[in-house]
Amino acid sequence: MASTTGRPRDSRRRLDQRGWIFVAPFAIVFALTFLAPIGYAVQLSLFQDQAFFGGTAFVGLDNYVLLFSDTRFWSGFLRVMIFLAVQVPIMLVLALVAALAIDSARLHAAGFFRIVIFLPYAVPAVVATLMWGYMYGTNFGLAADLNDLFGSEIRPLSLDWALASIGNIVTWEFVGYNMIIFYSGLRVISGELYEAAALDGAGPFRTIFSIKLPALRGAIVIATIFSIIGSFQLFNEPNILRGLIPNVLTTDYTPNMYAFYLSFGGQQYNYAATVAIVMGVITAVIAYVVQLRGARKGT
């Protein structure tokens, strides 16, 4: 026994060392592009610079303490939580319905619909937001025309509607992307399962609930995690719309915008780094919890 356990351990150790050579290209790039920036951000967050006078002081965790009582940060955080809770389910259900419809083989020109629904994802967020911003205009835009037509008073760019309007843009952009994730999940379901279901007398809806949705669980978890990350990082859409309504979309509208304006507007790089790190940790924790829950239900 003793002699047989000795040899493999030796060879494994040798393998380990040789393995580093193969890992090195990745490890170096990973360290430079991933670990180093995070390290730099963490370092930044422990200091307090004075941009105008060049003083730098080590302040330990002061920036973090400040952040936890910063209502501007937490109100932005709450806003993206609301966004997450409302927009993400709507978007994913729409994407799911679209994927199921295209996969159902009952749709004529399914390929055409697939492309059309996916197309908005190919439009850069900047362009999409400018385009929507134009349509949202309540004096001359599409919103103005619709309000005239129906006698309604909907102002997509007002304080009350802004978040919903942003949600609409994001949904429009990403339904197609999520649909593709779901659709590819559906394509890999073995045809034998459908045959068996049909023999057992399952109708189309029974097939959806008993075969298709369970098979999609992994894809749904992945899409959900992407969407959570996307929501917490909400930046482009509100920041571009800000050109139209700077008073409504304040500089602390989302945590990412807050970090952006702190650093590039106010030169408060240290505090901005703190915001970024705290948001990163929160995002990672929530994404991890979702993944764990998704995996547990799956088995």
Binding site: F52, L159, N247, T250, T251, Y261, G265, G266, Q267
Partner: peptide, 20 residues
């Protein structure tokens, strides 16, 4: 001496009077 940032945060504060 920090006019640029001052103008950036004008919207967050004084801007609210215009919205409301």
């Amino acid at each position: 001496p920090y006019q640029l940032y001052a103008e950036t945060i004008f919207y967050d504060t004084a801007g609210q009077a215009y919205v409301n």
